[in-house]
């Protein structure tokens, strides 16, 4: 028997991007900071779109350290969530558009987060990528790097621990 014709690549790509956007755009604080995500295959890049309200030192000027920390944390949580939700979305168990309508869908929770400030954040767009060092059933450990003009010159890096969503049965 002949195999069914595979879905056209654009359809798959559109569906995956729509799922990612549904997760990202559903979070008010991500919209407040105007962070977007670029997806290239399984690789996500967070993009912090510069705005004057992100300034922390008007004399330099430089990005607020809290904005840098938040940007790195958002990138870590979204990367971890995508890794967690994506197989479920692909398998048809979960509809990305329903995530924020369903009380039972939970996100990873930050336990701790440590940021190293390597140089001051310039008043322009910034990019970040998270690397999941370990994703266990309960805990995950994630490392994040952020840069601006030059990828080789990071302006901040971070690492943190996260509590993964627990299946309902284990909580009861």
């Amino acid at each position: 028997m002949a195999r069914p014709r595979p879905e056209p690549m654009q359809v798959v790509k559109q569906r995956r991007d729509a799922a990612l956007n549904a997760i990202v755009d559903g979070v008010p604080y991500i919209r407040f900071l105007n962070i977007g995500f670029d997806r290239r295959g399984d690789e996500l890049t967070g993009v912090l779109n510069f705005d004057d309200k992100l300034i922390g030192n008007p004399l330099l000027p430089a990005l607020h350290g809290g904005v840098t920390a938040a940007f790195l944390e958002v990138t870590a949580v979204i990367t971890l969530s995508w890794e967690y939700f994506f197989p479920r979305i692909e398998a048809g168990e979960l509809d990305a558009d329903d995530i924020f309508g369903d009380e039972s869908v939970r996100f990873p929770k930050t336990v701790d987060f440590t940021v190293d400030y390597l140089r001051s954040g310039l008043p322009r767009d910034a990019y970040a990528r998270a690397f999941i060092s370990r994703a266990g059933r309960r805990y995950a450990s994630v490392r994040v790097e952020a840069w601006q003009d030059n990828h080789a010159r990071l302006f901040a890096q971070a690492s943190g621990h996260f509590l993964m969503p627990q299946p309902k049965s284990e909580n009861e």
Partner: peptide, 18 residues
């Protein structure tokens, strides 16, 4: 606007960090 989850309205950790 600083919520990390629109369903609960809990402030995002990033805003607390700031």
């Amino acid at each position: 606007d600083l919520a990390g989850d629109p369903r609960t309205g809990v402030i995002h950790g990033g805003a607390v960090s700031a």
